[in-house]
Design a protein around this nucleic acid. Structure first.
Lengths: 169, 169
DNA sequence: GTTGTTGCAAATTGTTTGCACTGGT
DNA sequence: ACCAGTGCAAACAATTTGCAACAAC
């Protein structure tokens, strides 16, 4: 597994960042960090807590929240607000933060190139003096797999349509 | 006041819509509807409840939620998810739903023309098979008034900068 | 008189906080 | 040893739900 492989470097980096602020690298923080490093996806605080618990059941949910906050403050982690109240977290790997779109049916988060909203950001800045933080909330919509009844294709009335649907809202 | 003036028509329309589904026009629904009709802004469920209570203190918060849900289902009301877990509701007045951007500092919601994201929606559809519902979440950013320390303008060090800041997140 | 709706209270969900104690440095 | 950080439980905010009483039709 390449999972923890890439994490160590990050732990060192973050330790330095923390030290520079008179703060400390601790078990829970290390755990959260390596969970995030091991997963390229977008994890909710609870996802993180779950995976942290697998390694170290002693870590409390509140500590996960605090660690995520701290890591966000350090600029190591980005959080994204998705449609219905679920905040997701992920390591900032590249340089510019990317954008996100979430399917409102299955909840899947799609990563998008950061420049996608550059034009829009320009318009907002020019016309409204609004500085867009494009990656901070996920765009909402329906992904290909969940697209309900595509325009005109009356062939199947498959009942398994009401399948796993996470949170319809 | 033009407040309740425009509402009556809507109440009739909605009553018809409800009847068509075997449902009923009730006090709470009427109240929620006229509160929304009287306010051009974006109200949270609690805002609505507050204003409804002013007219009729008997209406329960849960009923406000249920009424808002129902009105949304009828296509009369649109709800927008904003950054930190606050859903806002407003009457759908025109034809196409407009877009929203919210200042993450003061919470103000900015209305935007619906076509602003048309190009982006096209790209998402083409490249990712993702059907964007642009108005469903508010874009996040910082509005003109809350823009913290604009690039290079070291003139004032006004202390009233730390003013009303609703929810920094 | 049905049956959809409400009010209420309690349950959920996601997150934060006060505090005594533990553990980095 | 000092103080940041933790675990815990309890507070919180926003929303949902089960249910008996109620009211629109």
């Amino acid at each position: 597994m390449t999972g923890t492989g890439g994490a160590e470097a990050t732990v060192d980096t973050v330790t330095a960042l923390l030290r520079a602020r008179g703060e400390r690298m601790t078990g829970p923080r290390r755990a959260v960090l390596s969970v995030l490093a091991a997963d390229p996806g977008h994890l909710s605080a609870d996802d993180v807590h779950l995976r942290v618990s697998a390694r170290d059941p002693g870590v409390h949910r509140a500590s996960v929240y605090r660690a995520l906050d701290m890591l966000t403050e350090l600029g190591v982690v980005q959080h994204v607000h998705t449609g219905r109240g679920v905040t997701t977290y992920h390591l900032i790997r590249g340089e510019r933060p990317h954008l996100h779109a979430q399917c409102r049916v299955c909840g899947t988060v799609l990563d998008l190139p950061e420049d996608l909203l550059d034009t829009v950001a320009g318009v907002l800045a020019r016309d409204h003096g609004f500085l867009l933080d494009a990656g901070h909330v996920a765009l909402s919509g329906v992904c290909r797999c969940c697209d309900p009844v595509p325009p005109a294709a009356p062939a199947t009335d498959t009942p398994e349509f009401t399948a796993i649907e996470s949170q319809e809202e």
